[in-house]
Design a protein around this nucleic acid. Structure first.
Lengths: 158, 158
DNA sequence: CTACATGCAAAGGGTTTGCACGACA
DNA sequence: TGTCGTGCAAACCCTTTGCATGTAG
């Protein structure tokens, strides 16, 4: 899907191509939403993207921004922080641990690795601030999503 | 705060102690919410915690569960997946990268590390499924939160 | 006994959806 | 020109808040 040298240099063209390949239309709104997320360096929320896009497309609506963001996410053109469409979730595990997250169903499991606990990243993040806790998030597909092709959402089951 | 050998063996007792130390009351509801999150292996949302607690405290209400979860979070007894009170946020950076997250204001910045990109975690997560993408999340305090003591929320500012 | 926490219900805010108009292919 | 996408507004759902009652200390 990616790797096209021309697309690397022109992400907008890449976006056009992916949209076309997916059989959906290439609209100004979609390109502008993509451009906005691409150029934002702050991991914006929908409202923020909306404000940015509205400067160039004054008639754009917030719900179109939402629809477009999820479309771009589904097509792999952008990603989300955390898990899509997810509500707040809590973690009672106070041992140092890391997370495996299934990108299809949202299953999140803990795993342990002393090697990962001791990751040295202090320098890499020094431009932002001071590190307190380092956690590795591995995204992938869980076993049941690998087998069954059911796109079923995760059912909370303890 | 932690490290007490007795508390390691009895988290509930640890919870009691932290609540008292914080000058808030030790109620059945708080202990049961804590117990529920502690024993859940699925990173439950508030609704799920509510259902679990209700089995033992039939009169408990959902809003008490919410209030208690955030209290326990603020006291460091539990944590959240993702960033507390946060709405959906999007990421247009398709290069392999990692995140620095300020636990006070929510500022989230990208940083790069080829060493981290190549982390070998396949075995550790094999019990859950197949890894696709590995991302490191470093939590800490950003520069402005280190200096200014303002607990101000982040303003979306591109 | 007194202040704090709870339960209830209603409000709040972010996100999604139904429908008629408008624009891409 | 036909179909898909958009804008509008209302609905939806998760989460928070105000207030009277109950309860820990």
């Amino acid at each position: 899907m990616p790797g096209d040298p021309a697309d690397r240099q022109d992400p907008i063209e890449h976006c056009r191509r992916v949209l076309r390949a997916a059989g959906v239309r290439v609209t100004h709104q979609r390109l502008e939403v993509f451009r906005e997320v691409l150029h934002s360096r702050s991991h914006p929320d929908a409202e923020s993207v909306f404000r940015g896009v509205r400067d160039r497309l004054p008639t754009v609506s917030l719900d179109t921004v939402y629809r477009t963001l999820w479309l771009l996410n589904d097509l792999g053109l952008i990603t989300t922080l955390g898990f899509p469409h997810e509500r707040h979730r809590f973690d009672g595990n106070t041992r140092p641990h890391h997370h495996f997250v299934c990108t299809r169903c949202g299953l999140t499991g803990d795993f342990y690795s002393e090697e990962l606990d001791g990751l040295a990243v202090a320098e890499a993040v020094s431009e932002f601030g001071v590190a307190d806790r380092t956690q590795v998030e591995v995204r992938g597909l869980c076993r049941s999503c690998l087998e069954g092709k059911d796109g079923a959402r995760r059912k909370e089951g303890e």
